[in-house]
Design a protein around this nucleic acid. Structure first.
Lengths: 159, 159
DNA sequence: CTCGTTGCAAAGGATTTGCACAAGT
DNA sequence: ACTTGTGCAAATCCTTTGCAACGAG
């Protein structure tokens, strides 16, 4: 192992992916690299959004990864600890790169997604651990509620 | 209408279903009463669980409500403010009677659901309101994590 | 009697799975 | 060459929808 470059900031680090794959005897494929890059690029990536993005990125003549490959790859990447997924209420799960955990807050009216500091839940997490023996996974938490804009709109539309 | 009885006070009335339906010109059907009863009886009712329960409850000779009716009824009951639903991670939404809001905690390993005091999140909710103008709906929140049993199991299975 | 409701069945959308071929090592 | 990965298509799962008969008011 000669190349031990420190992780770069603006680039997608191919290093951890290749390493982890090889250490498991798995193949480093173009598709896997592209899916991981797409998740990192899209803030809150649904599987479908990833498929669409990859389809757009695919150079003319090249075949974009199939949806089934994207699903399989996301599962693999998650098992490798490189991405996470969260369910934000209805429907599609969203994936994000597992760099810095953050808390998701979803507006039930408009679907807007905000990110917040996971530390917000530390106190609640400790209480749950003490009371129920339940370890809360802060990174997977999605809080739902109403954003400021929708709250005002709802108030003014009130008959 | 002429008489405005303004029975808008208690959201926790024993039989607000008939009232609310009639005030909207909707019919009070046996199916609707049964679905509401099933949601109240089942702690965390998925649509499918409701269908199964109603099927079991149906007296011999009577036809249990169809799944599509259950879905339509749940939607209606929610619009009437009589039930709530929450997405607990993967798949099925769970419905519960809209009596006392509570916080859901879901084990990602075994799917166990625990209920906790919504007040646990009060501090976090206030911070979110202040920081993002986001009003958290505590009753709809589902926290995910690992229950004590699964945590121990995972630790002991650890190689 | 007049509509809202329901059951049935078929349609839809999202995700998964089986397989034979293509690709990484 | 040997195995793992991928694309394609069919299979599932869950939920929604169209429609004619049914039942509440």
């Amino acid at each position: 192992m000669a190349h031990q470059h420190a992780a770069r900031r603006g680039d997608t680090d191919p290093a951890p992916l290749a390493e982890r794959l090889r250490s498991r005897g798995l193949r480093v494929t173009h598709q896997r690299e592209r899916v991981l890059a797409a998740v990192a690029a899209l803030e809150h990536a649904t599987p479908e959004a990833i498929v669409v993005r990859l389809r757009g990125e695919a150079a003319a003549g090249s075949t974009p990864p199939d949806a089934s490959t994207v699903y399989r790859t996301l599962e693999l990447l998650e098992s490798l600890g490189l991405v996470w997924h969260t369910h934000l209420g209805t429907g599609a799960p969203v994936y994000h790169a597992a760099e810095h955990p953050h808390l998701h807050v979803v507006c039930q009216s408009c679907g807007a997604i905000a990110s917040a500091d996971p530390a917000l839940l530390d106190a609640a997490a400790e209480r749950l651990a003490a009371d129920l023996g339940f370890t809360v996974d802060v990174g997977h938490v999605a809080l739902s509620g109403t954003c400021a804009a929708c709250r005002e709109r709802a108030a003014s539309e009130q008959t």
